[in-house]
Computed example of a mutant assay.
Amino acid sequence: MTLSAARPVRRSLTAETGTALPAFVDHHVHLHLIDASSLARRGIAAVVDLGGDAVALARRGDGIPRVTFAGAFLTVPGGYPQGRSWAPASTVCEVTDRSPHPGVPGGARTAVDAQADAGASVIKVALNADAGPVPDDETLFAIVAAARERGLPVVAHAQGDGQVERTLEAGVDVLAHAPSGEPLSRRLLSRAVAAGQAWISTLDIHRGAARGRAIADLRAFAARGGRVLYGTDLGNGDLPVGLNRRELLALHEAGVRGDRLVDALSDPWPASAPVGGLSTFIPGPAPDDSADLAAWLSRGTVVPTEELDRVD
């Protein structure tokens, strides 16, 4: 098996030989629920926080992992994730007015501006109809329009009947989770791909039938050319901090293999450029069999690119 982005290298500090790949990103984490200090040595160079205190996240600075964030979940009164022990008040922003005008208390535009002004790179809206009320169509459209005015993509937690379709109608850019409810129709899958929507995997948070449905829908989405992003929802339950071998194996099961798996890991979204100055180092060459790729990738660690010397 050949990975187009791989290059044979030697670490200048240790003389260890191996393979360099682009820096890896976990596209769905919650930093307030984890100790992020071990992420780099376990292969994650950058993270996208999809639900946290925007002000606190903005204060983290420019260390490793590199952090981009959505800030608070935008939801409606009584909506997900309000009332959860893991979601302090600072991580949730209620939208009580559909207003597209700035400065309106509780307005859709006001909620978006609050996250953007704090430094958010993406806006997250909660559309979890299985766990409470969700924004109506007018409010959802207003949130998306306000994000567009600020030049920000929108990611949605879409769960419950009809919610994935609503994201497409509103122009939501990314799903925070591969859908795990009822199987999606071929028409809806094709619409998602044609719209350029990306799906963050988070397959390992599921067990039983929900896991099977999520893998099946992601497989169908990927087979149609859909853009898949590696993400774990780190902080949600007992997940390993760093590269998650189970998530990688589930992606392989969903048909995201070889170069596509590396692409899902190294996609810079929501940034437009790859993580600069950092690479993933994995001891030894890439395996010959793609079935062994997930386990091999899970051994990655983050190193400064300047410490890697190419071996011809």
Rank of each mutant, 00 (worst) to 15 (best):
G160N: 10
R84F: 04
A129F: 09
A36H: 00
S37R: 14
A147W: 09
A40M: 07
T301P: 03
F69R: 00
V76C: 01
G171H: 05
P102G: 11
G255N: 03
A23Y: 04
P22H: 01
A146H: 03
A214H: 06
A108N: 05
V134S: 12
L152V: 07
D26P: 10
L248E: 04
H27V: 10
E169Q: 09
E253C: 11
V112E: 07
E307S: 15
G300L: 05
N236K: 15
D233Y: 02
K124V: 07
P135S: 05
P100E: 11
L203D: 07
G160R: 07
T96I: 15
P102T: 10
D53H: 02
F141Q: 15
L251V: 13
P135M: 11
E169D: 12
L3S: 05
G43H: 03
F69T: 00
T305I: 08
P179E: 04
L297K: 01
L265A: 02
R191W: 09
G181E: 09
T2Q: 15
R41S: 14
D49C: 01
A220K: 03
V47M: 11
R166D: 04
R7P: 10
G225M: 05
S190L: 03
D113L: 09
E138Q: 14
T68N: 12
R246N: 13
R246V: 13
R246G: 08
L175I: 12
H27Y: 11
A23H: 12
I34G: 06
T280Y: 10
V174G: 08
A20I: 00
K124S: 04
R224V: 02
D97G: 09
D238F: 05
L31V: 01
L21W: 03
A58F: 04
R211E: 14
V122G: 10
L31H: 04
D136F: 11
L74E: 01
D137R: 15
N236L: 13
G107R: 13
R109C: 15
Y230M: 06
A72Q: 05
G119C: 13
T232K: 11
R260M: 09
V112K: 10
S12P: 07
P77F: 13
L293F: 00
E94D: 15
D173F: 03
E149H: 12
L293A: 00
Q115V: 10
R11Y: 12
A120R: 06
P65D: 12
D161Q: 14
G258M: 00
